[in-house]
Nucleic acid binder design. Structure first.
Lengths: 161, 161
DNA sequence: AACATAATTGGCATAATATGTCGTTATGAT
DNA sequence: ATCATAACGACATATTATGCCAATTATGTT
């Protein structure tokens, strides 16, 4: 699946810079900003999409306004570090829409870090005790609540390469 | 800045559902999918944008292909929990493009969690020792490397409200 | 340095989409 | 039931995207 390396010039990097921040910019304005005419600009965007450098476009929503007042980071440790245990855990976790991120991490303290959105403490308590803790193999769970999001979803740097 | 509550009906929720996953969908297809004609559909999207429910649109890029092979979670603890210390830390952290997320969290072990993208271990070592550890007030730093991203950037649930 | 080849560009015509207006329909309160 | 308000769909217009082609620019070889 790993395609040709694809050399990025300054135009491509500029495109990536801009669309990471303004995903719905029109091709015409994008072309203006990078200093190309619309045709080659669009061709480059399409190439970046096809090479998988641009994965997809997303709208970011205000989770608070949607009623999710609480964000938690949950560190999970497992009893056995076997592929079966991990696969099974992942399958269960995928079914919980409140879990918006799941990373496998190093460190003695935890195997997974989950990022979780819930409405309130009751919601969290239920999710932790009655859903996540009941998944086979989970031996430990340590929660950090997010007091403030200083920033999130910052663009990936494109400058030097 | 907190505007009127804005009651969301099933159309609005459906819009939020879709644009969280396909941020560049055309208004016409969006209208088709939610079962409205283009005019009211666009009006609703604009309203959601103006109410801040849709914060912005972003292209998601493949950080690996951009040369960032390593993702780390860095937990930082500070000597004093004063606004000045925190503000100063945030100001410095904002200047580092490799830090793509910064959260203030609860827990005895750390005050901040940073999500960091670097090219390799050398890169990380330099960033940690020569940049972040030198910020005033930083007393502890514990790193977890991300072995695998099971999923990231999952949509915020919109169903029940 | 001159040349041939390949790649990329810009312009243009056409198609698709967005945007604003207006008459009609649905909604909710009295 | 009546009225006022809000939301809808349809249509006309403006903007944007898309595909093609000639011209230009870059690349690599002798």
């Amino acid at each position: 699946m790993s395609v040709s390396p694809l050399v990025l010039d300054r135009f491509d990097r500029h495109i990536l810079d801009i669309v990471q921040q303004e995903g719905r910019i029109s091709n015409q304005e994008l072309a203006d900003r990078i200093g190309l005419s619309p045709s080659p600009c669009l061709r480059r965007v399409r190439a970046l999409e096809e090479h998988g450098l641009i994965l997809h476009y997303r709208a970011e929503v205000d989770s608070r306004q949607l009623g999710y007042q609480l964000m938690a980071l949950l560190h999970i440790s497992m009893d056995q570090h076997t592929p079966e245990r991990f696969d099974n855990f992942e399958r269960h976790i995928r079914e919980i829409p409140n879990v918006i991120e799941c990373l496998i991490i190093t460190g003695q303290a935890a195997d997974f870090q989950l990022k979780i959105l819930v409405r309130d403490m009751d919601d969290y308590q239920h999710l932790l005790l009655h859903v996540i803790n009941r998944i086979e193999g989970v031996t430990g769970a340590h929660t950090s609540f997010v007091l403030r999001r200083v920033f999130e979803h910052r663009p990936v740097p494109t400058d030097r390469l």
